[in-house]
Design a protein around this nucleic acid. Structure first.
Lengths: 185, 185
DNA sequence: AAGCTAACTTGACAGTGTCAAGATAAAGCA
DNA sequence: TGCTTTATCTTGACACTGTCAAGTTAGCTT
């Protein structure tokens, strides 16, 4: 959809909080109210853009998975790397989808891609769950760590300019995580 | 400052992306352009509100620290609990200060409270740094984990309604973290 | 040819941030 | 007392925003 393309481009140019129906319309070469026809309001357009964001998010993780060695720990590192790839390559989309603003959760596309992203995490974690512990415990542990790392790097970047630069590399954090999993399993 | 109070109340009522100079003015009982005098633009007001947010953030951590046992691991758990207290009690402020929007980083108040929050983290981590490892590595490890946990809980709350409810308690994640630190030290 | 529908456009409205200009009231000083 | 300066607003305007109602147009069906 051309309007979603325009929206993504707009976010990239102007920042994650500068989305505008009218500017999207102008960018796509249609009249100012055309977006209101396809998406009933700005939440609708935002949701479509967020769905696109989650799709790219999934692709980034899957791409790293395909190139990964088959060992479970390698695969876990791979999806984390994919997570960070997405945040690095699409910082505005990353902030946009995790901005806390309301999306239309009943939107089919949106629901599809958000649940797919969690499924990737779940399946990659599965072989690493220590006996007798709730899988969700490890999933949230991993997801919190990588999400927190990426999100802090983007939002507090004055003190720490740029994801990775000036920060400990994520692989060192991953090392600590693996130690914790070994100690539990 | 009454306008900042009004702004915080507005965020609480309407959500973290619904701040408006004119509505703040109305809430504070002044004319629509009065906020433009005190803060030269909406970024100025946002920065003042974010500074207030970081101050409350620091207070939440310090309050838990005062009630904590003196052991270093207890103190680390305490600031994490304070972190989560803040996110729970001021969800809109939490999302607002970590929204990724630009603040005026040269603002004195803002700089003071943001650096104070990082200093609390740094000092609490200090006794736990394993010999020969970069302190920042552990600081970012801890901060990423607790921030990721809190932020995911707030932004993806459809799948996981409410911080804590339906999620593994943070103390279990903290347990894994301590294991990792023991394995390193 | 007639009718129907999807995909728009046009025009209006209230709300927004921002700016320039004026008002008002207190404070400092002659 | 009167005059000037300064801080703190108010008023009014402008361009921009989302949203809605109404009109238009092109393509398909019958």
């Amino acid at each position: 959809m051309a309007l979603v393309d325009a929206g993504v481009a707009l976010l990239r140019e102007r920042g994650p909080d500068k989305l505008s129906l009218r500017e999207c319309a102008a960018k796509a070469g249609v009249s100012h109210a055309a977006p209101g026809y396809h998406f009933k309001n700005i939440t609708g357009l935002s949701t479509a853009i967020a769905a696109r964001g989650f799709a790219l998010f999934c692709e980034a993780m899957e791409k790293r998975l395909e190139a990964s060695a088959p060992a479970a720990t390698e695969r876990l590192s791979a999806i984390c790397q994919g997570y960070l790839d997405f945040a690095t390559e699409h910082p505005e989309l990353f902030l946009f989808i995790f901005s806390g603003q309301k999306f239309n959760e009943t939107d089919e596309d949106f629901a599809l891609h958000t649940s797919r992203s969690y499924a990737i995490l779940r399946e990659t974690c599965a072989p690493l769950i220590p006996e007798g512990t709730d899988p969700e415990e490890i999933e949230i542990l991993v997801w919190s760590l990588v999400h927190g790392y990426a999100h802090l790097a983007m939002t507090r970047k004055k003190e720490n300019p740029g994801l990775g630069r000036g920060w400990p590399d994520f692989s060192t954090l991953m090392g600590h995580l693996h130690k914790a999993l070994q100690a539990s399993g």
